[in-house]
Design a protein around this nucleic acid. Structure first.
Lengths: 201, 201
DNA sequence: TCTGTTTTTGAGCGTTCACTCAAGGTATAA
DNA sequence: TTATACCTTGAGTGAACGCTCAAAAACAGA
């Protein structure tokens, strides 16, 4: 009996991610959202509830994609630490490439900074997502420890935060007008930091 | 003959810095600005021209203060590299302290990320400020090189960007709800990165 | 005290904000 | 074909946005 929706929910979300990633929460108006999603306000509100709701779903979608990317990347590495080093270098490379993404900086970090004193719900969500990513890194590092790649006494959560800090710094730095070479060098230098944590036998 | 202004321009700017640092550009409305500066719109516009103008002056003021802080800090260190290491640890400590500042993250980075696709003028200004900071670090490192603290072949601008990236990451990470201990550990770990660049004799 | 200049004031400008909802359109099931 | 449920539409809501400006207030010099 009912009429099915004419739009593709996931496709709309992807477009929302792109817009919010580019312009941020306050920088994206409903007018721009309507245009980007090619949906009228009524449909948007029926589907996502509010601008906050749409942003929240977009952020979750972005985080899900990021997690999948990390998993896929790590799957092709025997050495976890080397996989993480390559991950840092890959981020630098893709940031250095001409606008393949809506922005170089991470949407989660942009949200963390923008929402910290203006939108408690989004701030909290950004915190949760970052905590989950920290956990992902920590679990990878625990495996690395079990494989003898890093010292048994290594504090994996602490090292995970160091790595997360590198990514935050790298991607934020990439928003500066640096050359591709400079961004890649930064990625290399950050990857090199992990050398000190390797067990060399 | 003329009536002198009743407000203190610098004091007003300091209050603007505090508000913008806390809430960002889009997150600070003129109503809130009027309240924070205790000035009526006419006076604000006569003094600073526009919201953009006020933000621009606030950002410049913040950067000036940051530069002065760095100079003052470094003055008390014979070893430049050790001074920079202590600088990173100090940032971590002050971020860990209970709200001594309007926000933990850096206003310049917040502006860089927020303005990149919504306000070219502020984006450009943030880029300039960050480039100047990079230069400050690079000059310090050149001195360190001359003093034999770091290898003669060190690329100082490149290392300067690595340090700047650490600060960006550290202060962004501090916006997460981490414990004081965790933030300080991150500061320690980032300071430790510079050990690898020291010439040990 | 009076005059001249400047600052302060705040009501209010037009615009844009996020959002609503009654009306009309379009699919499915009978 | 008809009935029914759902979806789409877009003009329009009140509120908040950044900003203006004529009038009132406050100072310094005469």
């Amino acid at each position: 009996m009912p009429r099915p929706p004419s739009y593709d929910r996931d496709a709309a979300l992807a477009k929302a991610v792109s817009l919010f990633w580019n312009k941020g929460y306050h920088g994206s108006s409903m007018k721009q959202i309507e245009q980007a999603l090619d949906m009228r306000p009524g449909s948007i509100y029926a589907t996502f509830g509010s601008k906050d709701g749409l942003f929240s779903e977009a952020l979750a979608s972005y985080a899900r994609q990021g997690g999948a990317d990390l998993s896929e990347h790590m799957a092709s590495y025997d050495s976890i630490v080397e996989g993480l080093q390559a991950y840092l270098r890959n981020i630098a490379s893709s940031c250095a490439d001409v606008d393949c993404a809506p922005a170089r900086a991470c949407l989660i970090v942009k949200t963390l900074l923008e929402a910290s004193s203006t939108n408690p719900a989004l701030y909290s969500q950004a915190q949760s997502v970052l905590a989950a990513i920290e956990t992902s890194f920590a679990e990878l590092l625990e495996s690395a420890k079990n494989q003898g790649e890093i010292a048994a006494k290594t504090d994996c959560r602490r090292l995970a935060r160091l790595i997360q800090g590198q990514i935050m710094g790298l991607r934020s730095m990439a928003e500066r007008n640096l050359s591709a070479t400079e961004v890649k060098q930064l990625g290399d230098d950050m990857a090199a930091i992990l050398e000190a944590y390797k067990v060399h036998n």
